[in-house]
C-alpha cells in the first residue's frame, strides 16, 4: 500500500521535474503525459476507478493529442524539430524563486498541520452512484459543464481557423 504510493509519487514528481528541465518540447510533453498517467494511477490506488479512467481518457487520450498537434502545427523549421530556447537567467531565477517560496510555504504547512483522518474501510463509489449523483443533485453543474464544453469547442475552432485571404497575404515573404 505505502510502497505503491511511494513508487507513484516518485514517478509523478520525477517525470514532471525532468519534463520541466528538458529542452526538447516533444520529450517534455510526453514526460508530462507520463506524469498525468501517474495521477490516474494514484486515483486507481485511492479507489476512485471511474475518475482514474476518465483522467486517462481525457489527459492521455485527448489533451496530449491536442498538445502534440499544436507542437507539430507551430514548428517553423525542419532542422530544430522541437527545441525550445532557454529563458533568460533573471527570468528563470525569479520564476524558480517564486515557485520555491510557494513550495516552501505549502510544504511547511503540510508537515506541521495535523488533519483529522477517518479510520476504517476505504470508501467505495460505483459507476451507478456517480450516475445517480450526476443526474440528481449535480445536474445543474452537469448542464453548465456541457455548455462550457460546447462554447469552448466553437471558440477554439473560430480562433484557430484560418482566413484564406489573410493567410495568402501573410505567407508571401
Amino acid at each position: 500500500m505505502t510502497f505503491a504510493f511511494a513508487f507513484l509519487a516518485v514517478l509523478m514528481v520525477a517525470s514532471a521535474g525532468v519534463a520541466m528541465l528538458l529542452r526538447n518540447l516533444i520529450h517534455s510533453a510526453l514526460l508530462l503525459v507520463l506524469s498525468w498517467a501517474g495521477v490516474a494511477a494514484f486515483y486507481l490506488w485511492a479507489g476512485a476507478q471511474f475518475v482514474a479512467f476518465a483522467q486517462l481518457l481525457v489527459y492521455v487520450g485527448a489533451i496530449s493529442m491536442v498538445v502534440l498537434f499544436a507542437v507539430l502545427l507551430t514548428r517553423r523549421s525542419a532542422g530544430s524539430v522541437a527545441d525550445v530556447e532557454p529563458a533568460t537567467f533573471a527570468r528563470a531565477a525569479a520564476g524558480l524563486l517564486a515557485a520555491g517560496l510557494v513550495g516552501g510555504v505549502l510544504g511547511a504547512t503540510m508537515l506541521r498541520s495535523h488533519f483529522p483522518t477517518a479510520t476504517g474501510e476505504a470508501p467505495k463509489i460505483s459507476v451507478h452512484d456517480i450516475g445517480v449523483d450526476l443526474m440528481g443533485p449535480q445536474v445543474a453543474a452537469l448542464l453548465v459543464v456541457g455548455v462550457i464544453l460546447t462554447v469552448s469547442l466553437i471558440g477554439a475552432v473560430v480562433i484557430a481557423a484560418t482566413d484564406p485571404a489573410a493567410t495568402d497575404k501573410e505567407d508571401k515573404p
Binding site: 492521455v60 485527448a62 502534440l68
Partner: peptide, 24 residues
C-alpha cells in the same frame, strides 16, 4: 471492472500516442 467500457477506451487512447511517437 465496474467501469470496463471506460477502461477499454482509456487503454485504447495509449495506442494513439504510440503512433505519434513512431512517426515523430
Amino acid at each position: 471492472l465496474d467501469a470496463a467500457v471506460l477502461f477499454f477506451f482509456a487503454a485504447g487512447a495509449g495506442t494513439e500516442l504510440a503512433v505519434f511517437m513512431a512517426g515523430w
